[in-house]
């Protein structure tokens, strides 16, 4: 359930392009044709699905304050979080390069359709953004991190697919000359983002549920209030939490 929720949340509500505006550069530059857009979108899903879990491991076992404790107690005090950016970037760039080499070797046909997009991806801020969000949102497990990576990738894929389809059609429309190409694409993206904002409403439902639960917890605390010491109450609160 947690997985499904995170999956849909990262596709629609937290859509990389429309909610956080990450990966805009390649989104605008490579969306002239549907076929190329599909290629780049697929590559983004693929790379996000690999790098987010990888960086999750890095974050958990190397970068977080106290993450080195698996090496022994004396390492527990180290805090390497200042290296996050560099490590994440290095992982992403290395993975992209590795994937490129492997695909080239084993599936030349896939390489021909996907290969030219791979170098572009290393500079796509949606990829680094995915890892940084994973870190700041404290995603709890490796499985969830994978789900999050795939979900965000699919969100980006859908966005670029949609804009490419619109751009192909709009060529037959009578757009003012000065607005053709980039200008109208910016404005359409803006309108699409406004549309996607309505998905934000899906979050509110969840909130009310949480509130109901919280109220219930509050009531429970109240019932034990008279019973005796603070100690018990504190324990109780903790259990409920």
């Amino acid at each position: 359930m947690e997985h499904i929720e995170l999956f849909f949340k990262s596709i629609f509500i937290d859509n990389m392009v429309f909610a956080t505006f990450l990966g805009m550069c390649s989104y605008l530059a490579v969306s002239k044709k549907v076929t190329t857009a599909v290629g780049l979108g697929a590559a983004v899903i693929f790379v996000l699905a690999i790098t987010v879990p990888l960086n999750w491991l890095l974050d958990q076992y190397i970068l977080q304050p106290g993450a080195l404790s698996w090496l022994g107690e004396e390492y527990a005090a180290y805090d390497l979080s200042f290296l996050s950016f560099i490590m994440f970037i290095a992982t992403i760039a290395t993975m992209v390069q590795l994937v490129e080499i492997i695909v080239e070797k084993f599936s030349p046909s896939l390489y021909n359709s996907l290969g030219i997009f791979l170098p572009l991806i290393a500079v796509n801020c949606a990829i680094l953004g995915g890892s940084l969000f994973m870190q700041s949102r404290e995603i709890a497990s490796l499985g969830l991190a994978t789900t999050y990576g795939i979900g965000s990738g699919i969100g980006w894929f859908l966005a670029i697919l949609a804009i490419a389809a619109i751009r192909e059609k709009i060529r037959y429309s009578n757009v003012p000359p000065a607005l053709r190409g980039l200008g109208i694409t910016f404005i359409i993206t803006g309108l699409m983002a406004i549309g996607f904002m309505s998905f934000g409403g899906m979050l509110t439902g969840g909130d009310e549920e949480g509130e109901a639960l919280e109220n219930k917890n509050g009531a429970q605390i109240k019932t034990v209030k008279d019973s005796s010491t603070t100690n018990e109450i504190a324990n109780n609160t903790k259990v409920i939490e």
């Binding site: 000359p177 000065a178 200008g183 910016f186 404005i187 993206t189 803006g190 309108l191 983002a193 406004i194």
Partner: peptide, 15 residues
């Protein structure tokens, strides 16, 4: 989203 639209308009004016 309005930033996108404002940039779009700037492009329009410039071109």
């Amino acid at each position: 989203p309005m930033a996108l639209i404002v940039v779009g308009i700037i492009i329009w004016v410039q071109r």
